[in-house]
């Protein structure tokens, strides 16, 4: 009986071995990077001869890294704001509207998610060269917004579909204006959707590499572009330090997301 763990006999141990090995395979590079970032060897010898914080020192005292991190953060925040706002307004229309071609529109909004991002990057690069948006914050924001918006729309249409509209209607019947009913009744009810839309939008922009490589200029680059450019020259442990900080940000966001999910269930 293959779907009962305890009656699998020897197969149980085979399956467990594969799973443990795979989990180790998935975890190893992440732990490895974290360990190397504290290792003293310039040549990334493992295990490190001794432990040090000098790579973090080098990272945090280099204004170019700090500026790249700040640029990433700033762009990701703006992208999150617009992605959630535009996505929310569009989701109301997509879920509640009764016009023709609604499902076609939905599919159109999802295409940036499935299209190879390099095609979009090259196409936008050509377009921005023509209208002078290359190497500008606006250019970055627009490019990231295109790939973040599908996540927003996905999260928010899902949340709105699960929300009973009659509650909003009841508020309107009790004298609230439609806008006020939306702001005070509907938005709090779909806050988990808003929250995941925001987190996904932020992470999409914050981690995005390919579009960023094409949008960047020598004076304006995000953290992934800076890592990319450094990686192409050498494998310095400074990148291990930067990567570890990025992993910590990711873990924190994952924990927050899990806590919010748990809080909603409780």
């Amino acid at each position: 009986m293959l779907l009962n763990f305890n009656s699998l006999g020897i197969w149980k141990w085979a399956l467990l071995t594969i799973t443990v090995l795979t989990a180790a395979f998935l975890l190893m590079p992440i732990l490895f990077i974290a360990a190397l970032s504290f290792g003293s060897s310039q040549w990334l010898i493992f295990p490190p001869p001794s432990w040090t914080l000098k790579w973090y020192g080098a990272l945090l005292s280099d204004p170019r890294w700090l500026e790249a991190a700040w640029t990433s953060f700033r762009i990701a925040l703006i992208v999150t704001f617009f992605s959630v706002l535009i996505g929310l307004v569009a989701s109301f229309g997509l879920v509640r509207g009764r016009f023709m071609g609604r499902s076609t529109l939905r599919a159109l909004f999802m295409t940036p998610m499935i299209l190879p991002v390099v095609v979009l990057a090259v196409a936008l690069y050509a377009f921005f060269l023509r209208i002078g948006l290359n190497g500008t914050t606006t250019g970055f924001v627009i490019a990231h917004l295109i790939v973040a918006l599908p996540f927003s729309i996905l999260a928010l249409t899902g949340a709105l579909e699960g929300f009973d509209k009659s509650i909003e209607d009841a508020a309107v019947l009790c004298g609230a204006s439609p806008l006020r009913a939306k702001l005070q009744i509907t938005l709090p009810c779909i806050s988990h959707g808003l929250f995941s839309a925001a987190i996904f939008s932020f992470l999409t922009s914050w981690d995005e590499v390919v579009l960023a490589i094409f949008m960047a200029s020598p004076t304006l680059q995000t953290l992934p572009v800076k890592i990319w450019a450094t990686l192409r020259q050498d494998l310095t442990p400074v990148i291990a330090a930067a990567s570890t900080l990025l992993i910590i940000v990711t873990v924190l966001l994952m924990l927050i997301a899990a806590a919010v999910k748990k809080g909603l269930k409780a």
Partner: peptide
């Protein structure tokens, strides 16, 4: 673990493999 590896920055993961797989790597 699966989610962590999926959400870790793509460049960080690729960097890890560049270091792990190099001639003098682990």
């Amino acid at each position: 673990i699966v989610l962590l590896s999926m959400w870790t920055n793509l460049l960080a993961r690729t960097y890890a493999w560049m270091v792990l797989l190099q001639r003098t790597g682990v």
